[in-house]
Design a protein around this nucleic acid. Structure first.
Length: 284
DNA sequence: TGCCAGGCCTTCC
DNA sequence: GGAAGGCATGGC
């Protein structure tokens, strides 16, 4: 296996995979700043040393372009961070704390299913369920002496029952997952046409799925559809926005969203992710 | 024990 | 169109 080395800047591997946007990266205890994860059809080990990342994979074909796309390495985050720290001191402090977070370009179907599972759930349990689904229905890959599992394809989930979903620990979300697979199989959402849809159309389409509300839809748009302008509001973001920008006055999600859209506009997504991570890690 | 977790659905005004 | 209650499950 050949190790790929890529020069990076304004990229922090740890923050990017630990900030809550993805659920399948595992930190390697034996090595510093190294993680193993599954991206689409391959398993990767990624390690960062300063401004270089070192990548190993079971599949070397197109490895550099897959990694570049996934970690959004062709986007100029130096420019983005310089722009967004101008918004105000709150954003400046957050971005300074967690500089190098990048918004991932994850697989659409995996992101859709994962964020349906995320509703009224916590991150460790979401990860556990996603891994369980993969282990049961995804393809097994041997990598560095360990067994890993790809996230299952729509086809691989075709005959999975609600009861079987529930055995993966997803609880009441079993029917949502079941229905979503059916909807995709019957062509209600055309996976091939996503890039051509406007954000509003795609969002409305996602909202027709049971188990997908505004927050889940926005996470899917942001983390797997390159819609950097959306601003997912969960309990943490509601909390941090309310503390930073609305002080004591009570604020609704609608007010928060309007404020964020106006202020952060096309950078709302990356700002949201910095605020979310800062709040969770108690850095503000 | 009761509350919370990257919310959403249904029911009822 | 907005407010309440319910929902599986595990961790604290």
């Amino acid at each position: 296996m050949k190790e790929l080395c890529i020069e990076v800047k304004y990229f922090n591997l740890k923050y990017t995979v630990e900030c809550g946007q993805c659920f399948r990266w595992k930190k390697l205890e034996a090595e510093d700043n190294a993680y193993v994860g599954v991206i689409k059809d391959r398993v990767l080990k990624v390690r960062q040393e300063g401004n270089k990342i070192y990548v190993l994979s079971n599949k070397e074909e197109n490895l550099e372009s897959v990694v570049t796309e996934y970690f959004d390495l062709n986007t100029d985050y130096e420019e983005i961070e310089k722009e967004i720290i101008k918004f105000d001191d709150n954003v400046k402090k957050a971005v300074t704390n967690t500089s190098g977070i990048r918004i991932l370009n994850q697989d659409f179907f995996e992101t859709l299913m994962s964020y349906i599972i995320s509703a009224n759930n916590n991150i460790p349990r979401i990860s556990k369920s996603v891994n369980e689904l993969s282990k049961k229905y995804g393809k097994k890959i041997e990598f560095l002496g360990e067994e890993y599992y790809l996230f299952p394809t729509v086809k691989e989930l075709e005959n999975v029952t609600k009861e079987e979903y529930r055995e993966c620990g997803v609880g009441f979300r079993d029917a949502y997952l079941y229905n979503t697979v059916k909807e995709i199989l019957n062509g209600s959402i055309d996976l091939e046409n996503i890039d051509n849809m406007t954000t509003q159309n795609l969002r409305n389409k996602l909202l027709t799925l049971k188990g997908v509300g505004p927050k889940v839809a926005d996470c899917i748009l942001l983390f797997s559809c390159k819609r950097g302008e959306v601003f997912p509001i969960d309990v943490w973001v509601e909390r941090v926005m309310s503390v930073l920008y609305f002080k004591e006055q009570k604020s609704t999600k609608k007010q928060i969203l309007e404020y964020a859209n106006n202020k952060f506009s096309k950078y709302a997504g990356i700002v949201q992710q910095h605020l979310f991570y800062n709040m969770r890690e108690n850095l503000l």
